[in-house]
Design a binder for these strands. Structure first.
Lengths: 197, 197
DNA sequence: GCTGAAGGAAACGGATAGTTTCCTTGAGGT
DNA sequence: ACCTCAAGGAAACTATCCGTTTCCTTCAGC
């Protein structure tokens, strides 16, 4: 008597199935936020049973992390021959990441991981490290041009920039002004950067 | 037949009751972590019903926020006549806040607030702003001595320091080394700080 | 065709938040 | 000394969600 109508099955391929689930999750996340993006909702919207969702992701956190990682486009900052222009573009880009909707989702996601630094590091490696690589490239270009000191402690500089932006947006909830971005750029161009010891 | 034994009541005053609840919550938080600090556990450990807990706090988040705020001692950095020494002590102190257990709890707490910037700001005002006031004092002292530039953008400098430390500890999960603290101090003493425009 | 694995529907077990019910009891007034 | 009533204890309740399991249908490949 149970309504086992089931199965409007074109037999999705695993790739199609995963894609459909992530798409559904993304739509819910954008429309209703992190808390509302539950496994039940995702499965319902993707038109499949929770069982099929759990086939490919072990839990909600990893699923949403995967979603955010895929959506995390790493922008490029093309060589413009102008270090100031490139740095402005770079830091604007980073500010976009941290102040945007997905920046908030990332914060909520990390906040829901209690005592699992391993998962946390994996998430960061897939989302934040690629962005760091971009920043590193731009800074190196500036050094090569002689516009930035050769002995910059790049890691520390990147963490200062990222730290400021995530802290202002995500913790203090203060807006990141255009003038603030400019201040950071001018500071670096003036050689006022942390140095390797 | 219901076991209404209840009531070993010395009739606690509201202050005693609140204190007892916060103490219980703190013990659970320290012993078992954020996720395990549930309203049921808190009530049980405090020896009262959940009803009595909800009488004084509207929800778990505000209760734990209250707890963290009360436990958040603001250290002092006494005038030592030595700006370098004071800055080192200051930044060590901030690093202690962010890398310590309660730094992690604060991060988890903020991560559990979805779409309530009002509550979030309240929490930060009670925990982070007092610390900022301390930092501001120390920086001003350095300026008065002529050891730091007079036109520092103090807000930005404080956010750079706090941002770096929370980001390294809380996001990147990288250790904050003593040498990093020293780098920040030397940078400031060299006048390499953001300036008011 | 036959058969086995994929997968849909739905129930289930276990947590937890926050609410409500019901009853006891002690504090304060008389 | 007694009475009344509000504070508050015990526990059930509603609702939500995670992650698991059961059971059955259907398609794909043999």
């Amino acid at each position: 008597m149970t309504e086992q109508t089931g199965v409007r099955r074109p037999r999705l391929s695993p790739e199609e199935a995963r894609e459909r689930i992530l798409t559904a999750a993304g739509e819910i996340l954008d429309a209703s936020g992190y808390a509302a993006t539950t496994m039940e909702e995702i499965a319902a919207r993707a038109g499949m049973a929770k069982k099929s969702v759990y086939r490919w992701w072990p839990n909600r956190i990893v699923l949403i992390a995967d979603l955010l990682a895929r959506r995390s486009t790493v922008h490029t900052v093309p060589d413009q021959g102008d270090t100031r222009a490139e740095l402005l573009e770079l830091i604007d880009t980073i500010a976009g990441y941290t102040a945007g909707a997905d920046g908030g989702q990332l914060r909520l996601l990390l906040g829901s991981i209690d005592d699992d630094p391993e998962t946390e590091r994996t998430i960061l490696a897939r989302i934040i490290e690629p962005r760091r690589a971009l920043a590193r490239t731009v800074v190196q270009r500036g050094i090569a041009r002689g516009d930035l000191p050769a002995d910059i402690d790049v890691d520390l500089l990147l963490d200062l920039w990222n730290g400021l932006l995530t802290y202002r947006s995500g913790y203090r909830r203060a807006p990141v002004l255009r003038s603030t971005v400019q201040q950071l750029v001018e500071l670096a161009l003036a050689g006022h950067t942390p140095r390797l010891r």
